Amino acid sequence: MSTNLIEIWKEIEDPNFHVTENQLHPSPKPFTVLNGSKLRSIPVPEKVDILGDGVISLGQLTTIIGQGGTGKSRVTMQIAISQILGWSMAGLKTHPEPLKHLLIGTENSIYRQKSEYRKMTQSLSPEQREQVDANMFLHVVQEMDDAFIHLGSDDIRKKWVDTFELVNPDVVYIDPYGEVHVGDINKDADVRHTLREITKVCRRFNPRTAIVIVHHGRTGRANIAQAVGWDKGNYALGSKALYSGARSQINIAPADPDDPSRIILSSGKSNDAKPFDPVGLKLDDTTMLYGIDASFDLQAWKADVDGKQLNTNFSIKEVAQQLLDKPKKNSEIHAELGGSEAGSRRSLDRILAKGKKEGYFRTEKRGYKLTKKGSDLIA
């Protein structure tokens, strides 16, 4: 009976069926394997660093990790603008030739994106602005469908593919990771699946596209301390699979709890090069660009987040007394008050920021000046 069925099937089977099936669903090829001789001689693309030495590179996955409100989105936009213009960022060199950057995500409204982009580019020459405009592409939430970027949907995944075909970027920044993640962010398998989906979409048309994932860090004093040191790999929220999948990680942390304009950038991971040293940055409210904070002291910051502030007992009244005769700059006030370099500079910066906010001091070209409220405090 079975023999008859086989013969009947052979008679009715379309001889082209297997040919068509193999064309539509070809068998997977083996992994690419090279012997030592071929590996030694095979030509490979030149390594192209976009930021620093292996911090962001073409064909690489980098993560940027930080708590909410620490300026992650602003830092990513500044990295892109700096690279296009060949400027350094946080003391890290950028690739000299302008590359194409795509910032995709729903973390910020179009109002903030437009405002900060205009401020960041307002001081540029017409030629520089034209160059940045031609190489910066920003996903904005202008229509309802723009707000959904979750990779678990076939329709949304197609929107990603169509966007990459349209822009074909050299670098893509995904902000925030939580909006594209599929499954439980605490489960390794779900994070690995999401990273595979991100890679397939982002490198469909350009296998060397650099992928930068912006993600939230753990909150609280103890977790902020993990931005540097032994526990820097534990800084990100959720599964460690994200940390494992990245070649490089940039950690962003608040440098001062009383001054949100000051942040610290550190290397959370660097597989392909020497990690860069932690650096303090301060935001310019006019240009919305970060510059290096010369007053930042890493040891004082560590002592602060560890709850061991050093020589930090300055008061608003003590500072006000130093301003009684004339306006003074930070360095002059610090020299007169004394204290160790490790602790007192950050304490003074906090007191000056607090005193200015509460109306005891104001700033002018010559430095900090006492207000009537400050004079009354001394009296």
Rank of each mutant, 00 (worst) to 15 (best):
residue 108 N to M: 06
residue 46 E to G: 01
residue 332 E to I: 05
residue 157 R to M: 12
residue 272 D to E: 14
residue 332 E to L: 07
residue 362 R to S: 01
residue 59 G to W: 05
residue 355 G to K: 01
residue 174 I to P: 04
residue 4 N to V: 12
residue 333 I to C: 08
residue 136 M to V: 15
residue 141 V to G: 09
residue 225 A to G: 09
residue 373 K to F: 03
residue 318 E to N: 06
residue 270 S to K: 06
residue 265 L to Q: 00
residue 262 R to T: 04
residue 346 R to A: 08
residue 364 E to V: 05
residue 185 I to Y: 04
residue 133 D to E: 15
residue 5 L to C: 04
residue 127 E to H: 10
residue 313 N to F: 03
residue 230 W to N: 12
residue 23 Q to I: 14
residue 8 I to K: 13
residue 115 S to M: 09
residue 131 Q to C: 15
residue 378 I to S: 02
residue 115 S to Y: 10
residue 211 I to P: 08
residue 343 G to R: 04
residue 250 I to H: 01
residue 224 I to D: 05
residue 257 P to D: 12
residue 378 I to Y: 00
residue 252 I to Q: 03
residue 164 F to V: 08
residue 117 Y to I: 03
residue 29 K to C: 07
residue 257 P to E: 14
residue 81 I to H: 00
residue 121 T to N: 08
residue 44 V to M: 15
residue 107 E to Q: 11
residue 77 M to S: 06
residue 24 L to M: 13
residue 344 S to T: 15
residue 111 Y to P: 00
residue 223 N to V: 08
residue 108 N to G: 00
residue 83 Q to R: 01
residue 352 L to F: 05
residue 219 T to V: 14
residue 268 G to S: 09
residue 34 L to I: 11
residue 361 F to R: 03
residue 368 Y to C: 04
residue 249 Q to M: 12
residue 32 T to K: 08
residue 2 S to N: 12
residue 335 A to S: 15
residue 139 H to S: 13
residue 242 L to A: 02
residue 113 Q to L: 13
residue 212 V to A: 08
residue 320 A to K: 01
residue 88 S to M: 10
residue 343 G to E: 04
residue 127 E to C: 09
residue 80 A to I: 06
residue 237 L to P: 00
residue 18 H to D: 14
residue 123 S to T: 15
residue 322 Q to T: 12
residue 226 Q to P: 04
residue 140 V to Q: 12
residue 160 W to I: 04
residue 69 G to F: 10
residue 318 E to P: 01
residue 63 T to S: 07
residue 36 G to M: 03
residue 118 R to I: 10
residue 352 L to I: 08
residue 80 A to C: 15
residue 175 D to H: 11
residue 66 G to N: 10
residue 333 I to Y: 07
residue 82 S to A: 14
residue 239 S to P: 02
residue 28 P to K: 05
residue 200 K to A: 14
residue 43 P to Y: 04
residue 299 Q to G: 11
residue 12 I to Q: 03
residue 3 T to A: 13
residue 240 K to I: 11
residue 82 S to Y: 00
residue 7 E to I: 13
residue 229 G to Y: 08
residue 362 R to H: 12
residue 373 K to H: 02
residue 26 P to H: 02
residue 110 I to P: 06
residue 75 V to A: 04
residue 98 P to R: 02
residue 22 N to S: 15
residue 206 N to W: 00
residue 188 D to S: 13
residue 16 N to F: 15
residue 293 D to K: 06
residue 305 V to D: 06
residue 343 G to P: 09
residue 86 G to S: 06
residue 132 V to E: 07
residue 273 A to F: 13
residue 294 A to G: 07
residue 140 V to Y: 11
residue 275 P to V: 03
residue 1 M to P: 09
residue 105 G to M: 09
residue 89 M to F: 09
residue 351 I to G: 02
residue 186 N to F: 10
residue 248 S to E: 02
residue 321 Q to N: 08
residue 260 P to H: 03
residue 348 L to W: 11
residue 308 K to G: 09
residue 201 V to T: 11
residue 37 S to R: 12
residue 140 V to R: 14
residue 122 Q to L: 05
residue 183 G to M: 06
residue 244 S to C: 01
residue 280 G to D: 05
residue 167 V to W: 05
residue 232 K to N: 14
residue 29 K to I: 00
residue 25 H to K: 15
residue 313 N to T: 11
residue 222 A to Y: 15
residue 242 L to I: 03
residue 7 E to Y: 09
residue 273 A to C: 10
